[in-house]
């Protein structure tokens, strides 16, 4: 099959990357992942609870043949992110990492300077780096130059559900970058996912829009369909927008009613 998402040499039939957090319970999480069709699931790396509760999400997801993508969520410096990525590599035996370095506690926007620095270090250490970044074409290009495996610009702030705030930037990023572009963060509903795919994104990473909807399993299904529709529309190529109407029925050959004189 040719129409696949390929990142760092690994191909997937689904273009949706899904988060594993904030679902009402574990079963809803698993059912939502299944309904979304996602094959890549993000996880965080955290200290174990020394008072017990050692149940791991890792075995649950791994036995469903899902690819786990550890993140560096919660990191504010390149050093912390590199350390977390190294721990993740050891825990999950994967060199893939969703590189996330926050620069502002209120907006949770990425710190481009730390991100690029960490990406350079991690690429040298053999990681396939998928950076969560701002929708800034220059920052995205710097991450490509650093050797990242994809770029993951935000649509809007994490968990905000505001959709894509800057389609202009997204279009510039798409036109200049041939690496996979995964829209990460800000998706609110299925039409946002459709729009991202219509504008040529290779995939979408989302969590809150599904997990916090009233019916996560149904929303997961909606996201899958919305993405598929958007991707097919992108491949088909939309018509250019025009200012004025253009008749779709033939303009000649219209019957005329005879009038008695």
């Amino acid at each position: 099959m040719s129409d696949q998402l390929t990142i760092a040499g690994k191909s997937f039939t689904s273009r949706l990357l899904i988060g594993s957090s904030m679902y009402p319970n574990q079963q809803v999480m698993l059912d939502s992942i299944a309904a979304s069709g996602a094959q890549i699931v993000t996880v965080a790396i955290r200290r174990i609870n020394l008072q017990g509760q050692h149940l791991s999400v890792q075995s649950l997801l791994a036995e469903r043949n899902l690819t786990l993508l550890p993140n560096t969520a919660g990191c504010y410096t390149a050093e912390d992110a590199v350390f977390t990525a190294e721990l993740a590599r050891e825990a999950l035996q994967t060199n893939w990492v969703k590189l996330e370095i926050i620069g502002d506690r209120e907006t949770l926007l990425p710190d481009a300077v730390e991100l690029i620095r960490a990406a350079e270090i991690l690429v040298k250490k053999g990681f396939a780096v998928l950076p969560y970044c701002s929708d800034d074409p220059v920052a995205c290009q710097r991450l490509v130059d650093a050797g990242c495996a994809a770029v993951m610009p935000l649509g809007s702030p994490i968990g905000s559900g505001q959709g894509i705030l800057n389609l202009y930037n997204l279009d510039i990023i798409r036109s200049r970058i041939s690496l996979p572009i995964i829209l990460d963060a800000g998706i609110g509903t299925a039409s946002d996912a459709t729009l991202a795919m219509e504008h040529g994104c290779d995939g979408i990473l989302l969590n809150t829009a599904i997990a916090k909807s009233n019916n996560p399993v149904l929303m997961a299904s909606a996201m899958r369909k919305g993405m598929e529709a958007g991707h097919e529309a992108f491949l088909a190529g939309r018509i250019p927008k025009k200012t004025h109407a253009q008749a779709s029925s033939p303009v000649s050959g219209l019957a005329t009613k005879a009038h008695k004189h």
Binding site: G19, S20, S21, M22, Y23, M29, T42, V43, A44, I45, R46, R47, I48, H54, S56, V57, Q58, L68, P70, N71, A73, L87, A88, A91, L92, I158, N207, T208
Partner: peptide, 10 residues
């Protein structure tokens, strides 16, 4: 000593 494992995350 740091001991960590994968948790749910976005």
């Amino acid at each position: 000593i740091e001991i960590v494992k994968p948790f749910v995350g976005g």
